[in-house]
Structures are given as C-alpha cells and as structure tokens.
Amino acid sequence: MTWTWTAPAGRALSGTLGIAALLAGARIAGPRNKVLWTAALAPDTALLLGASAAPTWRQLPRYAIGPYNALHSPAVPAALLTAAALTRHRSLLVAGLAWFGHLGWDRAWGYGPRDADGFVAGRERAGEGGFRADRAGTARPGLAAPGPRRP
C-alpha cells in the first residue's frame, strides 16, 4: 500500500503526524511561543493573498496558486528542520515542527496542493450545478442533488 493523503488511512496518518509535530514543538518551546504559532499559521498567508479575488471558497485565483503550493510544500519544513540540525538553533526546530504540523493537519482534512485551476488537486469537483454523479449516475453522498432544470 502506498501512502497518500487522499486515502482515509493516509489522512489519519497525516493528522497523527501533524498533531505530534505540533505537540513536540509546543513541548520544546512552550505552548505560547510566538515562533511556534507564527510558523503554524504561516502557510495560510497565501490564502489571504487570494481570498478577496477567489471565485468561490473552494477555488484560489491563479496568482495565489504558486505561493499556496510553495508554502504548503513539505520542502519548507524539511529545510527548516535541516537548518535546525546543522545550526542547533531551537527556533528553527520549533518553526519546522510547527510548519510540518500545519501541513499534516491540512492533509488530514483533505487539503493538499492546488491544481492549475486553483482547486485542491486530487479531489473530485462538484459539477456546474453543485452535483456530482458516480459511474452509475446516482448522486454521491454528501453532495447536493441537482435542482430543477432552468430553461
């Protein structure tokens, strides 16, 4: 079995690792540490960049996709943790753990990188009317049924 954040087991693993990383950072620096919470929230600054121009709450505008994907890449906490190991700087360690915790939490809730249209990559999109049918043509659970057709 291959790990993927789009599968339930991968989402559970992502959430567990994310919470463990955030708790480890809080244990090292304290639960009210500014570096911890700044790094835990920093990846979502890209959402603020595109929030006012987003076509829907599910889709980012094109200019915000690159920053969002860059800030939500595992390379960022990996670089922070590598720098912490090389320099033995506690703040870098805390920032790396908090950033990793944010990514794990996002993946646990099904949020990953965005595709070229600004939607979460790997997720099925709702149709134009908010309806998505499976192969048999029946409505999928949790999604809105289609309303009456307009002329």
Results as ranks from 00 to 15, higher is better:
residue 111 Y to N: 11
residue 114 R to L: 09
residue 118 G to Y: 04
residue 119 F to I: 02
residue 109 W to I: 06
residue 125 R to Q: 14
residue 108 A to V: 03
residue 104 G to E: 03
residue 97 L to R: 10
residue 131 F to M: 07
residue 116 A to D: 14
residue 108 A to L: 02
residue 113 P to M: 12
residue 95 A to K: 09
residue 99 W to R: 05
residue 103 L to G: 05
residue 106 D to R: 12
residue 131 F to D: 06
residue 112 G to K: 10
residue 130 G to N: 07
residue 99 W to T: 06
residue 105 W to E: 00
residue 114 R to T: 00
residue 126 A to H: 07
residue 95 A to Q: 01
residue 130 G to A: 07
residue 99 W to Q: 04
residue 96 G to R: 03
residue 126 A to S: 08
residue 110 G to V: 02
residue 122 G to I: 12
residue 129 G to E: 11
residue 103 L to Y: 04
residue 98 A to Q: 03
residue 97 L to M: 05
residue 121 A to T: 01
residue 124 E to T: 06
residue 131 F to C: 15
residue 113 P to H: 13
residue 111 Y to G: 06
residue 130 G to L: 11
residue 129 G to W: 14
residue 119 F to K: 07
residue 125 R to F: 07
residue 109 W to K: 12
residue 112 G to S: 14
residue 102 H to N: 14
residue 102 H to T: 08
residue 110 G to F: 10
residue 98 A to P: 07
residue 132 R to G: 04
residue 105 W to D: 00
residue 105 W to S: 03
residue 98 A to W: 06
residue 108 A to M: 12
residue 115 D to K: 13
residue 120 V to H: 10
residue 108 A to W: 08
residue 120 V to R: 05
residue 130 G to W: 11
residue 98 A to L: 11
residue 132 R to C: 03
residue 108 A to Y: 03
residue 122 G to T: 07
residue 132 R to N: 04
residue 115 D to R: 13
residue 130 G to H: 12
residue 114 R to Q: 05
residue 126 A to P: 02
residue 127 G to T: 01
residue 101 G to A: 02
residue 98 A to H: 03
residue 105 W to I: 12
residue 99 W to H: 15
residue 101 G to K: 01
residue 124 E to H: 15
residue 105 W to Y: 13
residue 120 V to M: 07
residue 115 D to A: 06
residue 107 R to E: 01
residue 129 G to I: 00
residue 122 G to F: 09
residue 128 E to I: 10
residue 128 E to V: 09
residue 122 G to P: 05
residue 123 R to T: 12
residue 101 G to N: 00
residue 103 L to W: 01
residue 116 A to M: 10
residue 123 R to I: 14
residue 96 G to V: 06
residue 107 R to F: 11
residue 107 R to D: 02
residue 126 A to M: 11
residue 123 R to L: 15
residue 107 R to Y: 04
residue 104 G to S: 03
residue 112 G to I: 10
residue 130 G to E: 12
residue 122 G to N: 04
residue 108 A to T: 01
residue 117 D to G: 07
residue 128 E to P: 15
residue 130 G to R: 14
residue 118 G to I: 03
residue 96 G to M: 06
residue 97 L to S: 04
residue 100 F to R: 02
residue 129 G to V: 01
residue 104 G to N: 03
residue 130 G to I: 02
residue 100 F to W: 13
residue 98 A to E: 08
residue 117 D to E: 08
residue 117 D to M: 03
residue 113 P to Q: 13
residue 96 G to F: 11
residue 103 L to I: 11
residue 130 G to D: 08
residue 109 W to F: 15
residue 130 G to Y: 09
residue 127 G to K: 10
residue 108 A to S: 13
residue 119 F to E: 05
residue 104 G to D: 01
residue 116 A to R: 15
residue 106 D to A: 12
residue 102 H to A: 06
residue 125 R to G: 10
residue 106 D to G: 12
residue 105 W to C: 00
residue 110 G to P: 07
residue 127 G to M: 07
residue 114 R to E: 00
residue 116 A to I: 02
residue 130 G to P: 02
residue 112 G to L: 09
residue 124 E to R: 15
residue 124 E to G: 14
residue 119 F to T: 00
residue 97 L to G: 05
residue 106 D to I: 11
residue 112 G to C: 05
residue 95 A to N: 04
residue 110 G to A: 11
residue 108 A to I: 00
residue 131 F to R: 13
residue 132 R to T: 03
residue 118 G to D: 00
residue 127 G to E: 09
residue 109 W to Q: 13
residue 117 D to C: 03
